[in-house]
């Protein structure tokens, strides 16, 4: 099996079958990272370029490690060293990179739609590593893999996503992913951070966090960006933390076997208390481990599996 598509740009485009294929492939790759020699030769001779226009540690490193564990050659380009600061257009950058014959470009950009534009310029595969407030498909896939491991299923679950929904690509990708798999997603946040028409994406919407947490199987806390305070999305970090921050008291609303996810990096004591972040329900580090496996699967299904058909 392989993905019958050139690029992985978002969860919205994927079918349930494709999601299941990526997740089962990722589950089978997890074992590679537990070996003494953490490498398989599957993508030997393939070249992956990580083109990051936004700062990222976790995601970029995860893509790089995933490529290397598959024996692909990985090259990192970050904005501070790229030609973008010299005024080169995305199109010119894309065509120059393509002239070096990569097999895949992994791109992150602060503008929504950049990977889609890039995919139209180049013949190689393009993987979206986060575009503006649009999508972050590999994050949603690693979240789904983490939930599936613990819950054994992705259908019939109650998922609460709490925080700044308006600016979150993680929220959008997860709404698409979990609803496609048959779970019920509720998003919660201050009304200033709930984007217009979000319920039309197939989720419940509330500004009452207790309501969102009641009976939840999974709680996903989103990172709050401190600079939103000066834009009046919320008055103070203190108030945000009191109303929306996840602590032991609020956690009691959820199911006893609730699990907690966070895409990181976390603001301790703001959207999540330290006790909760470090507590038994927290799977934040499992998410990071699964991120590598999911990205190995993405590379494999886009670049490697074709020849085996």
């Amino acid at each position: 099996m392989r993905l019958k598509r050139k690029d992985l740009l978002g969860i919205e485009d994927l079918t349930r079958d494709e999601l299941e294929l990526i997740l089962s492939t990722a589950a089978s790759f997890k074992e590679v990272s537990e070996r003494e020699i953490k490498k398989v030769p599957t993508l030997r001779g393939k070249t992956v370029i990580n083109l990051f226009y936004e700062p990222s540690t976790r995601t970029r490193t995860s893509f790089e490690i995933a490529a290397k564990r598959m024996s692909a050659d990985a090259v990192n380009i970050s904005v501070s060293t790229s030609s973008a600061v010299k005024g080169e257009t995305l199109r010119d950058t894309a065509r120059n990179l393509e002239a070096m014959r990569p097999d895949c470009i992994v791109v992150r950009h602060s503008s929504s739609g950049t990977p889609h534009m890039l995919a139209g310029y180049v013949g190689c595969s393009v993987v979206n590593a986060g575009d503006g407030a649009h999508e972050h498909p590999s994050q949603a896939l690693l979240d789904m893999l983490t939930v599936k491991e613990k819950k054994g299923t992705l259908s019939g679950l109650k998922i609460a996503i709490v925080g700044d929904i308006a600016h979150s690509r993680v929220a959008r990708s997860n709404i698409y992913g979990f609803t496609k798999m048959g779970s019920e997603v509720t998003v919660a946040g201050p009304p200033t951070m709930l984007p217009a028409g979000i319920e039309k994406l197939g989720c419940r919407v509330t500004s009452n966090v207790e309501d969102a947490l009641r009976g939840a199987d999974v709680i996903m806390m989103l990172r709050i960006q401190m600079e939103r305070q000066s834009e009046s999305f919320f008055p103070t970090v203190r108030e945000y933390s009191r109303v929306y921050g996840l602590d032991e008291a609020k956690l009691k609303r959820a199911k006893e076997d609730v699990i907690i996810l966070h895409p990181g990096p976390i603001n301790r004591g703001v959207e999540i208390s330290s006790e909760v972040a470090d507590g038994p329900y927290s799977l934040i580090l499992d998410q990071v481990t699964n991120g590598v496996a999911v990205r190995m699967a993405i590379f494999y299904l886009l670049l490697g599996a074709a020849k085996e058909e």
């Binding site: 919205e12 929504s112 739609g113 575009d131 503006g132 407030a133 649009h134 999508e135 690509r169 959008r172 984007p195 217009a196 028409g197 979000i198 039309k200 994406l201």
Partner: peptide
């Protein structure tokens, strides 16, 4: 324009 299309595309809307 602000609305579900902007939300879906991850673009900032104008009311």
């Amino acid at each position: 324009n602000e609305g579900v299309v902007a939300t879906r595309l991850g673009l900032k809307g104008i009311p």
